[in-house]
Nucleic acid binder design. Structure first.
Length: 238
DNA sequence: AACCGACCCAACCGCAAAAAA
DNA sequence: CTTTTTTGCGGTTGGGTCGGT
């Protein structure tokens, strides 16, 4: 699938992962960690490139991944975060416990984007209502290495034009951000995310995110985020 | 029951940033 | 300081699945 091969030319396997490969990868990471993705497949005895192993782990095998349908709250959060961040999926994912950037990206492109585009009619049926439940997780390790820290907030803003377009659309449709003039700079994220990490640490969450079952921390994040955004807006008017 | 189009999502690629030498 | 290596990110693809006809 996909484009021209990159691993195949080196004699490495491509395509869907087998259960055996998954088990091998999980076992190796649980035992040795993943300090060196490039060397990992060789050490683990996998005929995959490091990139492929990393992707499989991050998007599917990681023990803290929350599988299943996105709740309407999560979808709303994605929409609002995308309004502010554009296509910075990893940053958005960092704020959604247990969700991966790839998954969020898929959800956005498959139905959230369409939802916003369809006559400004927000909060329609969720993916859970529209489609059947997801397949159960093939391999679900009970514990493993800690997830990577939240992505750096000071990445440059998205350069893609479509993110700008969707931003304007989302602002109108969600109704949560009433001013299109609202701008976010690096200092905003430094302060806001630091604040969030602090509160998460207080709640005993070393990943800097709430536990999947805890909506309080998520709500707390949004409350803080909106408060902070409001503060910055008023400051910018001075 | 079979066919077909639409949708979903896992996995790929290229590129840029970060880290190491 | 420069070059090389490694990691991480975002965009994209296409096989598999589902629902409608």
């Amino acid at each position: 699938m996909g484009r021209a091969p990159c691993c195949e030319k080196m004699g490495l396997k491509r395509g869907p992962w087998t259960a055996e490969e998954d088990m091998t990868l999980v076992a190796h990471i649980e035992q040795h960690g993943h300090s060196n993705w490039r060397a990992l497949p060789k050490q683990a005895g996998l005929l995959r490139c490091g990139k492929s192993c990393r992707l499989r782990w991050i998007n599917y095998l990681r023990p803290d991944i929350k599988r299943g349908n996105f709740t309407s709250e999560e979808e709303d959060a994605i929409i609002q975060l995308h309004t502010m961040l554009g296509n910075r999926w990893s940053t958005i994912a960092a704020r959604l416990p247990g969700r991966t950037d790839n998954e969020i990206k898929n959800v956005w492109h498959t139905h959230l984007k369409k939802r916003l585009e369809s006559s400004g009619k927000p909060q329609g049926a969720t993916s859970a209502q529209k489609r059947k439940p997801k397949k159960p997780v093939a391999v679900a390790a009970s514990e493993g290495p800690a997830s990577e820290p939240a992505s750096s907030p000071d990445q440059s803003l998205s350069t893609s034009s479509d993110s700008d377009d969707s931003m304007a659309t989302s602002v109108e449709n969600t109704g949560s951000f009433t001013s299109g003039e609202f701008q976010i700079d690096d200092s905003f994220w430094s302060e806001t995310l630091a604040m969030t990490v602090d509160s998460s640490m207080e709640a005993g969450d070393p990943f800097g995110c709430a536990s999947p079952t805890s909506s309080n921390n998520e709500m707390d994040f949004w409350v803080r985020l909106f408060m902070q955004a409001g503060d910055l807006q008023s400051l910018s008017q001075i």
